[in-house]
Design a protein around this nucleic acid. Structure first.
Length: 587
RNA sequence: GCCCUCGUAGCUCAGGGGAUAGAGCAUCGGCCUCCGGAGCCGUGUGCGCAGGUUCGAAUCCUGCCGAGGGCGCCA
């Protein structure tokens, strides 16, 4: 734990707790928090004396003074009481320097591990078989990938699940269409354009009664496990996953075929869901369907809203397989926690599924950390510059692969223009890092609950809170070392002196990485990490502007500043890595 | 009709009980022979509205307005 604010908090907390001793137990928990926050008047400020004084009926400044009388921050920081009872904290330079060298030496860059590692299932991406991936899959795929990386980094065991849509009534028509195209079971398909394929099948379904009937029969065959039908279905899934993998490879996310956990996988467990709900006495018949009524949900007429387990026609729908999923993840996988990275419109669905799972006693116990065992990590839409759903000029949804190709092309043009002398091989790699990074970062850098606006020029800009800006900062630092002909690792044991405010500010920013990562994790909000990295890069730019590194006045200063450069680059590179974004050494 | 999410500067977004609300872009004005000018400094404007809780509210609560979404057998 290198977050300096956390260090202060840990020193002050017992003292606040002591003073709060006489307070009613219920309010004590809240009032004993020192409330250490960043400040624009000092390195940090402690606000906890005010509420504590209120609870004790005492003077806040007196409370603050009694805390400081114990001299809890010796060797860490100076403190003075300000205003109505704030404690302003100014860290000792020696303390910052010591913490910094610890971070520089640490391959975790100061980020502490989870105290209690958990098994975390993260459900994300979830494209549909026989359809091309489109922009709509961007948020889930990119946010999910980042959450996977961050959870893994702090020591959780992460189970990636790509809950692809590979089951349902539409597979009857798709398989029949395959048959019409002359497909043999087991042969390798090359369905050129998945979207066109899907549309063709759909047209036939609407126009050809004979085809419709065949499709219906085919659904039954599929559900009953007919070998030939299953083989055709499998080839359809295979050609789709090949397409998914092309997207994932170009995008640079961790998903592989091993992570595929389509709806089909959970079909065999569906009867068990029914049995268990029945045994728990939760199942009700309503309008011919078997349902569960979780309390608190109502329909348009104000009547109780059911979660439908088995439809009137005898079919199961996605609520049922989602419940099967919960059971599987908790009982077979051993999940302590499940994250569903799925769009906000499905909020009510997940609330109901979680409610029913809880009623049935299937959810894991909540941990002491207080977080929910099942969380819908919701996000808003991707909008165009016109604030409407982002679409191509022809009004179609934009294909994911086209989007990524365009991103790389645009980045290639920018790189060619600005750094024409890069070797071609490097240029291609850099173009990809910048283009893909720009798309990912644009998605990750805003609060996921808000709709995001897709704007090529803004996301590819080298100014502002963008991937290229961060990548540039990183590359520029790498170039300092190249120019100096110094190995970055070689400076890591050197002493640092924080002579100027800019060096201090940069060092403190580096030390905040721990807090930034954990804040991101606690709120499942990658944009907090983005904001931090942008702030770090800005601090670096300011530092670099004011503090000559290679032209420093003396060797010790130069060496000290090289340490700051190295640490900054390490955190930038690592932080971008947690977002799933590459940081080239030159660009 | 009920429920959920969102509303912060001209634009795109941070900040989500703490003192004087920040950044980028755009505007305007300066600076610097610059260790990668993909630079630096300055400049103006803002918390949708109204109540409430609190020592303290952009932040929490209620109502209203506005935008989007959801509300029984699709996923």
């Amino acid at each position: 734990m290198t977050d300096p604010l956390a260090t202060v908090a840990s020193r002050l907390a017992p003292l606040f707790a002591d003073l709060a001793d006489g307070v009613d137990a219920e309010v004590r928990a809240a009032v004993a928090d020192p409330v250490v926050r960043p400040s624009n008047r000092a390195d940090a400020q402690v606000n906890g004396a005010l509420p504590l004084a209120k609870a004790l009926g005492a003077n806040p400044r007196d409370i603050a003074q009694r805390v400081l009388d114990k001299r809890p921050l010796v060797g860490i920081a100076g403190a003075e009481i300000a205003g109505p009872g704030f404690i302003n904290i100014t860290f000792d330079d020696d303390f910052i320097a010591a913490e910094l060298s610890a971070v520089v030496d640490d391959d975790r860059l100061g980020v502490h591990r989870a105290e209690r590692p958990e098994i975390v299932v993260i459900d994300y991406s979830a494209p549909n078989v026989a359809k091309e991936m489109h922009v709509g899959h961007l948020p889930s795929t990119v946010i999910g990938d980042s959450l996977v990386r961050i959870h893994t980094f702090v020591g959780h065991k992460v189970i990636r699940e790509n809950h692809i849509g590979d089951w349902g009534r539409q597979y009857g028509m798709l398989i029949e269409h395959l048959v019409d195209l002359g497909a043999e079971p087991g042969t390798h398909l090359s369905v050129g354009d998945l979207d066109a394929f899907y549309k063709e099948a759909n047209v036939k379904l609407e126009q050809d009664p004979e085809f419709l009937e065949r499709s219906r029969r085919r659904v039954v065959l599929l559900q009953s496990g007919d070998p030939e039908t299953t083989a055709l279905w499998t080839s359809l899934v295979d050609v789709s996953t090949e397409h998914f993998n092309r997207v994932y490879d170009l995008l640079g996310v961790l998903l592989t075929d091993d992570d595929l956990a389509g709806e089909s996988r959970y079909q065999p467990m569906v009867p068990d869901v029914l049995t268990r709900l029945e045994a728990a006495g939760l199942l009700t018949e309503s309008d011919g369907a078997l349902v569960v009524f979780p309390p608190g949900f109502t329909n348009r007429e104000g009547e109780p809203l059911p979660l439908i387990i088995k439809s009137r026609s005898g079919g199961f729908n996605y609520a049922t397989s989602d419940l099967a999923c919960v059971i599987d993840r908790v009982e077979r996988v051993g999940a302590n926690r499940m994250l569903y990275v799925v769009g906000a419109p499905q909020a009510q669905h997940f609330q109901m599924v979680f409610a029913v799972a809880r009623m049935a006693g299937w959810l894991p116990a909540e941990h002491d950390a207080g977080h929910d065992p099942a969380v819908h990590v919701a996000f808003g839409n991707v909008l165009g510059a016109d604030r409407k759903m982002f679409r191509s000029r022809s009004g179609e949804s934009v294909k994911f692969i086209d989007l990524l190709d365009e991103a790389v092309e645009r980045a290639r043009a920018a790189v060619g223009e600005k750094h024409a002398d890069l070797p071609d091989g490097v240029k291609g790699h850099v173009a990809r890092a910048i283009g893909i990074g720009a798309v990912k970062y644009a998605q990750l850098s805003t609060d996921r609950m808000r709709d995001s606006v897709f704007d090529w020029d803004r996301m590819l800009s080298f100014d502002g809170n963008t991937a290229p800006y961060l990548q540039y900062a990183h590359a520029r630092i790498c170039s300092i070392f190249r120019r100096a002909e110094v190995e970055r690792a070689s400076v890591r044991g050197s002493a640092t002196a924080l002579a100027s405010e800019h060096e201090r500010a940069l060092a403190l920013a580096i030390l905040s990485y721990d807090a930034a990562v954990w804040d991101t994790l606690d709120t499942l909000s990658p944009h907090k990490l983005c904001t931090y990295l942008y702030d770090l890069a800005s601090q670096f730019t300011t530092f670099y502007e004011h503090c000559p590194v290679l032209r420093a006045d003396d060797d010790a200063t130069r060496q000290s500043r090289l340490v700051l450069c190295d640490a900054t680059a390490s955190v930038l590179g690592h932080g971008l890595g947690l977002l799933g974004i590459d940081a080239p050494e030159q660009m």
